[in-house]
Design a protein around this nucleic acid. Structure first.
Length: 884
RNA sequence: GGGCAGUUAGCUCAGGGGGAGAGCGCUUCCUUGACACGGAAGAGGUCGGAGGUUCGAUUCCUCUACUGCCCA
């Protein structure tokens, strides 16, 4: 694939070319397909399946990038890395969108009928699935497409049925008439967590209900006066002294005249309102409970769309909120409404449609959660649970699972897994079965009807880590890759998904579905607001890739946050990531220019290494160790920072600048060694960076003489003892400090960059060799023509002076010497040194410090103190000389 | 009401018991044979406040203020 171009590589990196080319190459090479080597240890991640009719947003991009980084890294480390892709049929979300499209054509799903409607949905699914696949490609994800799954495909549907039947047979799934959360817009039941509570300004209406015997009245307060139509009692606290005489009496409901009893129940809070509450068992969960205790009638006054029904008398056909207004008006006219108080209370809204949720009495299917939760709690508390990263999310999970209520799993939708229950038209028998039964188990009639409802989408998502691997079949994949190693998701679906996968995994596979859960935050807009369709502040990852390239986006997202915390999306940061890509590109361009025509054999690392060579190899060792350690901790931001600093500040700013001397020089052996070091460091750096920036690293790596088939399967670097050279760090520090000091003087004295100057260096004994060995580099990087290095040299008259660690520098700038400037700089240096010396001496004279601080810290302070003092002596001596 | 985060340079954020960091922005200079998506040299912060632990706190603990999120 590599093209034999080096010298004519363009000077700016063009992401589009590389991205198209290499993704195809990777897929054709099947580098992402797991299971090719049974000797390797497996490492598995299943992707959180995106909603099939959506578009991937920037949150997906973050989530997917992080998984890809880990998978690519593990693959390079020699694991049999499996990243399993797939999508979710997303019941409500998808159905709503298809219905919206039909509405535009003036149609409803009922006009089409169930079968035709589902055909429409499948068409949508096909279109959007293709789109999502395309987005995965663009992001460069190393997914194993040969194992791609869909929550609605045959295997996963079998898993759903299996789970349903097993739970039913265990008595953990039941059907019954209870108060559930009803979405009148989507016309379906919802689970508890699909309801979002918001503070809403409303009113508390106080009403007088007259006693039937005419002996008085009782005042009740409510935020929902329209529910008066469904009242079947008034309740007071049994110990409430105010109402002792009234318990057992009968009141007459205003407006409708129904007679209802006054009952006593512990649930009533005597402190709230008047201490008497109206009871509407069919429209309030607490009232429902009271109704059961007191055997009250349950009167449903609304239909499925939130319109008042035939039980509402003259209000029939009105919308529930319109009805509220009318009822208030009528109550007022009847003189029953005694007070209207401003009142802020919490109102449930549908997570999907946004409609105000109606507590609604309805027959639904439920999962009995207690036993499943118990198992999960037990596992977590015994230390056998999943590891949450960051660990604070474990508490959030535990709190939820410990307080979980039964899960309403039936939905009145068409797009979803049909509930595997059948009813006999003849005898009314209900059958739950894996396969469609052909006759009634009771009366053998063949007149069977399947339950119309479908299951909550999350019911199938809960099985994702094992259903995708073939469960309930004992497949090879299931045996090899399950339990998975990691689940990576944002904190907003811990309850919806993570928790449910955990208890499902434990129940059906007797294993936790994943070892670690890595929780990320959300990607917000530049102002810190949550991205949303209504605000229109979402960022399309494809737009980011189009403008800056996939690698820039990946680097920006993965380094932009710490685990579990939100990050803001800022274009400047993407731009900065692109600059980084471009920097790597150009450093590589430089290297490749000097490797043109060089064979892999010639790049054997041997021979005499320069200071810079030893230093960069030593630093590479440390960087390899750091990056590996940081990835193990899922610390992507630090990983990125370490690589950025190593490549930009050390490799580009210093090593390459030093390397230019031998590379442009005459010494062939030095040239050969430098090329070898440069090629090695570049190769290793590209490998380290590859998980984060896959495209550019492959593009460059393929140009190296030492390249293999693909960097995606190149081995992960490990530190080499041969390059351990801590002394080189000290040497480079001295050189860098000296070069900077000269540049500083040049800048302050406004010496033109092209103007070559004279420089005299008086090194200390222990730095003389390092400085002497790097004479050409000092010349080049300081713009020096005439350089003298001598431990015994005399300070020339009329020269600028600087003191650095390990050496003194003199610049006899003819005609430019500014004594005042030199004195000012030396004084500034002196001030700093005085402060440092004082700080160190204060520390060392503190007996507590010397006695209690770790020995190496004390020793380090002593050493620092000595250095500062030595340096200060020199500064003082130079100042004295100048004054003399 | 309960819980959890955050508060560090102009902005956005890292960091972490022992000399305050990055990116962007800002100032000055430079189109030098990898790169102006660049190079060189700089300016800029008493790490929200108050106590405590410690030889030593920006970092650990407690309280407190403000911001955000989750749960009821």
């Amino acid at each position: 694939m590599a093209e034999p171009v080096q010298s004519n590589l363009p000077s700016a990196y063009d992401p589009k070319r590389a991205e198209e080319k290499w993704y195809d190459y990777w897929i054709e090479g099947r580098f992402f397909e797991a299971g090719q080597d049974p000797e390797k240890e497996p490492y598995t991640i299943v992707i959180p399946p995106p909603n099939v009719t959506g578009t991937l947003h920037i949150g997906h991009a973050l989530n997917n990038t992080l998984q890809d980084i880990l998978i690519r890294w593990k693959r390079m480390q020699g694991y049999d890395a499996l990243w399993l892709p797939g999508m979710d049929h997303a019941g409500i979300a998808t159905q709503t969108r298809v219905e919206a499209k039909l509405r535009e054509q003036g149609l409803s799903r009922h006009d089409l009928g169930r079968e035709k409607f589902l055909e429409e949905v499948w068409k949508w699914k096909a279109k959007y699935a293709a789109n999502i696949s395309q987005q995965w490609r663009k992001m460069g994800l190393s997914l194993d497409y040969s194992r791609e799954r869909f929550t609605f495909d045959e295997g996963l549907s079998n898993a759903v049925n299996e789970v349903f039947v097993r739970l039913y047979e265990k008595g953990l799934i039941y059907r019954g008439k209870y108060i559930i959360n009803w979405d009148p817009q989507a016309r379906t039941a919802l689970s508890d967590i699909e309801v979002i509570y918001k503070e809403v300004k409303g009113a508390l209406y106080h009403m007088d209900y007259p006693l039937k015997d005419g002996s008085g009245k009782i005042c009740v307060a409510t935020t929902r006066p329209e529910t008066i139509l469904g009242d079947t009692a008034v309740a007071v606290h049994p110990d409430d002294e105010r109402y002792q005489d009234l318990i057992g009496k009968t009141v007459v409901l205003p407006l409708i005249g129904r007679e209802i009893p006054i009952i006593a129940d512990e649930y009533v809070d005597p402190e709230f309102g008047s201490g008497a509450v109206k009871i509407t068992p069919a429209h309030d969960p607490n009232d429902f409970e009271i109704g059961i205790r007191h055997d009250l009638p349950q009167i449903i006054v609304m239909d499925e769309s939130g319109m008042m029904n035939e039980q509402a008398g003259k209000y029939q056909g009105m919308d529930r909120f319109e009805c509220r207004k009318q009822i208030v008006k009528d109550l007022q006219e009847a003189g029953v409404l005694t007070e209207v108080e401003e009142h802020t209370h919490s109102v449930g809204h549908s997570e999907r449609s946004g409609a105000v949720v109606e507590p609604y009495l309805s027959t639904q299917w439920f999962v009995s959660m207690k036993p499943l939760a118990e198992k999960a709690i037990q596992a977590q508390k015994s230390g056998e649970g999943v590891r949450f990263v960051p660990d604070r999310f474990e508490k959030i999970y535990l709190h939820w699972i410990e307080n979980v209520r039964d899960w309403c799993i039936s939905r009145q939708l068409w797009w979803g897994h049909r509930i595997p229950a059948w009813y006999c038209d003849e005898c009314g028998e209900m059958m739950v079965a894996r396969e469609t039964p052909d006759q009634c188990s009771n009366c053998h009639s063949s007149q069977l009807r399947q339950d119309e409802d479908v299951l909550d989408t999350w019911f199938s998502s809960a099985l994702w880590p094992f259903s995708t691997l073939g469960w309930p079949e004992e497949t090879d994949d299931l045996k090899r890759y399950y339990p998975t190693d990691l689940l990576l998701t944002a904190y907003d679906i811990i309850y919806f998904w993570v928790a449910r996968m955990i208890f499902s995994g434990l129940e059906f596979t007797d294993q936790k579905p994943f070892k670690d859960v890595l929780i990320t935050g959300l990607v917000r807009d530049a102002e810190g607001r949550k991205m949303s369709k209504s605000l229109g502040n979402g960022v399309d990852p494809m737009e980011v890739i189009e403008k800056y390239g996939a690698d820039a986006m990946r680097f920006m997202l993965s380094t932009g946050c710490t685990p579990g915390n939100d990050q803001r999306f800022r274009w400047e940061r993407v731009e900065s990531a692109r600059h980084f890509a471009n920097k790597i590109w150009n450093a590589s361009r430089f290297a490749l220019m000097h490797l043109d025509g060089v064979t892999a054999e010639e790049l054997e690392l041997s021979g005499t290494l320069s200071t810079a060579d030893r230093w960069i190899l030593h630093r590479l060792n440390e960087t390899i160790a750091d990056v590996t350690r940081l990835l193990e901790r899922y610390d992507f931001a630090e990983t990125g920072r370490v690589l950025y600093n190593f490549i930009w500040d050390e490799l580009c700013d210093w090593y390459i600048e030093f390397a230019k001397l031998p590379l442009y020089g005459e010494d062939e052996e030095a040239k050969r060694v430098t090329r070898a070091v440069l090629a090695h460091v570049l190769d290793q750096s590209l490998r380290l960076l590859h998980p984060m920036m896959p495209f550019i690293t492959e593009e460059i790596w393929q140009h190296l003489p030492t390249a293999g088939k693909s960097i995606t399967i190149a081995s992960w670097p490990s530190p080499s003892d041969a390059y351990h050279a801590p002394e080189s760090v000290r040497e480079m520090e001295v050189l860098i400090e000296a070069i900077r000091a000269v540049r500083n003087i040049r800048a302050e004295m406004e010496v033109a960059p092209k103007h070559e100057i004279e420089l005299l260096i008086r090194p200390d004994a222990d730095t003389t060799a390092a400085i002497k060995n790097n004479e050409p580099a000092i010349r080049r990087l300081c713009g020096v023509s005439n350089l003298t290095i001598d431990p015994n040299l005399e300070r020339p008259e009329k020269s600028m002076t600087a003191v650095v660690t390990g050496a003194e520098l003199f610049l006899p700038l003819a005609g430019l010497v500014d004594i005042e400037q030199t004195v000012a700089r030396l004084n500034a240096e002196l001030k700093k040194l005085n402060a440092e010396v004082e700080r160190v001496e204060k520390k060392l004279s503190n007996q507590g410090f010397v006695a209690k601080a770790p020995a190496h810290i004390v020793e380090a302070e002593r050493k620092k103190g000595e250095e500062y003092k030595e340096k200060r002596e020199k500064v003082l001596a130079r100042l004295a000389e100048i004054r003399a």
